[in-house]
């Protein structure tokens, strides 16, 4: 499962934590037609020969319309999607925050889930009490924390899940806009926690439609359209370009 040191390109600068070169992704969709009644796999190009270098400490906003390839790019960097061409080299622990379910076992209570998942996400036994406390306080669901997850509402599950993922310590954080859970009060709290999480993480890429979020916290912006890069610049310039692009259409 591991490569030899000699097989790795030594020319990548030390500060570069994500190097994406000539990276393309094709999805293979099963399709049945009159001509092919038994069906066949049809290729759909989602990302086209992307070249991006991201340095340590950068907070990058990934902007683009729905279907532009933002989520595909994040999932690719997380090692969850196979490219058809090209290469990605990442340096450090990569966590993908997409949705608010880190992998819950619904038959366990909120507390039991946090304990089991914490160990599976590399939290040591020494860190565990503080880790649990931080999630319990953030989720603020009272005695429900001791109930089985199968009895939770979507909002409650989202609170525990979001609290859990944002308590981890990644070197590279990939965020697919996920603040869709909980009530108004929770969203405010979640936004604060998210900012702290971003500050704690070394490098962050956020896929978002929120101009405000991109403007407030990002140092760089990349706009994607139809699987290709439209602009890769500082956050302000990328945001302006994105606004123009969406207004034209």
């Amino acid at each position: 499962m591991v490569l030899e040191e000699s097989e790795v390109d030594k020319n990548i600068p030390k500060s570069t934590v994500i190097e994406i070169s000539e990276f393309s992704v094709d999805y293979h969709m099963f399709k049945r037609s009159r001509k092919k009644p038994l069906g066949e796999f049809e290729e759909y190009n989602a990302l086209k020969a992307l070249n991006i270098n991201i340095n340590d400490g950068e907070i990058v906003a990934l902007l683009g319309r729905n279907g532009a390839g933002k989520s595909t790019l994040l999932r690719s960097i997380a090692g969850l999607l196979r490219p058809s061409k090209g290469k990605i080299v990442t340096n450090g622990r990569v966590i993908l925050l997409a949705g608010a379910d880190p992998g819950f076992i619904t038959q366990l209570t909120g507390r039991q889930n946090v304990i089991e998942l914490a160990l599976a996400y590399g939290i040591s036994e020494n860190e565990l009490p503080d880790f649990i406390k931080s999630i319990e306080e953030f989720a603020d669901i009272g005695e429900a924390f001791e109930r089985k997850l199968s009895g939770y509402s979507t909002g409650m599950r989202g609170k525990v899940g979001f609290g859990f993922i944002t308590a981890l310590k990644p070197d590279i954080l990939l965020m697919d806009e996920t603040l869709g859970v909980g009530d108004r009060e929770f969203r405010k709290k979640a936004s604060k926690r998210l900012n702290e999480f971003i500050k704690r993480s070394g490098t962050v890429i956020i896929s978002t439609h929120s101009i405000g979020l991109a403007r407030d916290i990002c140092t760089r912006g990349i706009v994607l359209d139809k699987g290709g890069i439209v602009i890769d610049s500082n956050a302000e310039e990328a945001i302006s370009h994105y606004i123009n692009m969406t207004e034209k259409s």
């Binding site: 097989e7 790795v8 690719s76 490219p83 058809s84 061409k85 290469k87 340096n91 990569v94």
Partner: peptide, 12 residues
């Protein structure tokens, strides 16, 4: 370090 290509996704 993790290398991702069309052939593999492996750690160094």
């Amino acid at each position: 370090e993790r290398v991702i290509t069309s052939e593999f996704c492996k750690e160094v």
